[in-house]
C-alpha cells in the first residue's frame, strides 16, 4: 500500500519546489510539447539534458526517480517489443523465418521508450514530486479561471479535485486499517480463486463505504457551518504570485522549445 511512489509528493525546499504551481504546469506543458516535437538526436539530447538538470535542481535523490520508473518497466518492454517486430521498412537488418527486423523498427522503439521515460520524468520533476496536491489544484484553478467566463464551474471542479486528492491518503490509510482489523480476525485476502478473493474483500469494502459516506456528510456539514457556498466572490488564503525565478524558468523553457522546433526545421539531416 505504501509503495505508491509514482505520483507522490516529496517535500523539499529546492528552487523547483518553490516555483509557482502555474509556472510548473506551463513548464510541464512545454516539456510535453517538446517531447513530442523532438524528432532528431540533437533535440533529444537537449531534452534529456534539461530533464537531468531540472531533476538535479529538485535535490530529490535520483533513487526516488528510478523507483518511480519501475512500474513502467512492463510498458516499456511491451512497446519496445511491439515496435521492433511490427514496424515495417525497406531493407531488413535481420531475418529469421517470419521475423523481420528493420532499422526503422529499432529507431521507433528507442524514440518511443525515450519519450515515455521523459514524460514520466518530466511530470515527476515539475508536478508530482515537487508540488503539493493542494498548490497544484490552486494553480490549476487559477490557470483555468478564464473558463468561468463561459460558465464552466471551474472553482467547484477544483474544489472537488482538492477534496478527492486530500482524501486519497486518508482512504488508503483506512483501507489498510480495516484490512488489518479483518486479518486479525482471520480474513484471508491472498488465496483462492477470483470469486473467493472478491468475496473476501466484502468485509473491507462495506466498512470503507460506510465511513466514506459518513465522512463526506461530516465534511459537507462542516463546510456549510463555515458558510461555504461555491466560487462566487471567494477570496483565497494563499494568493499565487509570479516571481523572478518563475520568469527565468519559463524563459528557459520557451527558448528550449524554440530551439527544438528550430532544429526540426533547420537541420532535417539529423532527423531520425
Amino acid at each position: 500500500m505504501h509503495d505508491l511512489v509514482l505520483g507522490q509528493f516529496f517535500p523539499g525546499d529546492s528552487i523547483i519546489h518553490r516555483l509557482d504551481p502555474r509556472a510548473k504546469l506551463i513548464l510541464l506543458l512545454i516539456f510535453i510539447v517538446m517531447t513530442f516535437a523532438a524528432n532528431s538526436v540533437s533535440a533529444f539530447i537537449i531534452l534529456l539534458a534539461a530533464a537531468v538538470v531540472s531533476a538535479a535542481l529538485t535535490r530529490i535523490p535520483p533513487s526516488v526517480f528510478i523507483r518511480g520508473m519501475k512500474p513502467l518497466l512492463f510498458l516499456l518492454i511491451f512497446t519496445t517489443v511491439i515496435n521492433v517486430f511490427m514496424t515495417g521498412g525497406e531493407v531488413p537488418l535481420f531475418e529469421f523465418g517470419i521475423i523481420h527486423i528493420y532499422k526503422e523498427g529499432i529507431i521507433n522503439a528507442v524514440t518511443v521508450t525515450v519519450r515515455i521515460v521523459l514524460l514520466v520524468l518530466g511530470s515527476g520533476i515539475f508536478l508530482t514530486y515537487t508540488t503539493s496536491p493542494i498548490s497544484l489544484t490552486d494553480g490549476l484553478e487559477t490557470l483555468l479561471s478564464p473558463l468561468s467566463k463561459i460558465h464552466l464551474p471551474v472553482h467547484e471542479f477544483s474544489m472537488m479535485m482538492t477534496i478527492a486528492l486530500r482524501f486519497i491518503p486518508t482512504l488508503v490509510e483506512e483501507t489498510d486499517k480495516i484490512m488489518n482489523a479483518q486479518k486479525a480476525r482471520g480474513a484471508d485476502f491472498s488465496s483462492g480463486g477470483l470469486i473467493k478473493r472478491a468475496k473476501a474483500l466484502l468485509p473491507v469494502i462495506i466498512p470503507l463505504f460506510v465511513s466514506a459516506f459518513k465522512r463526506a456528510e461530516e465534511l459537507a456539514t462542516a463546510m456549510e457551518c463555515r458558510c461555504y457556498r461555491g466560487g462566487e466572490g471567494r477570496g483565497r488564503l494563499h494568493v499565487l504570485r509570479y516571481r523572478a525565478r518563475d520568469a527565468v524558468f519559463l524563459t528557459v523553457g520557451a527558448s528550449l522549445l524554440a530551439a527544438v522546433i528550430a532544429i526540426n526545421i533547420l537541420y532535417p539531416i539529423y532527423r531520425l
Binding site: 488489518n180 468485509p203 466498512p207
Partner: peptide, 9 residues
C-alpha cells in the same frame, strides 16, 4: 485495534 467500531460489516 484502536477504535475497532469501523471494522463491523
Amino acid at each position: 485495534m484502536q477504535y475497532p467500531e469501523y471494522q463491523l460489516f
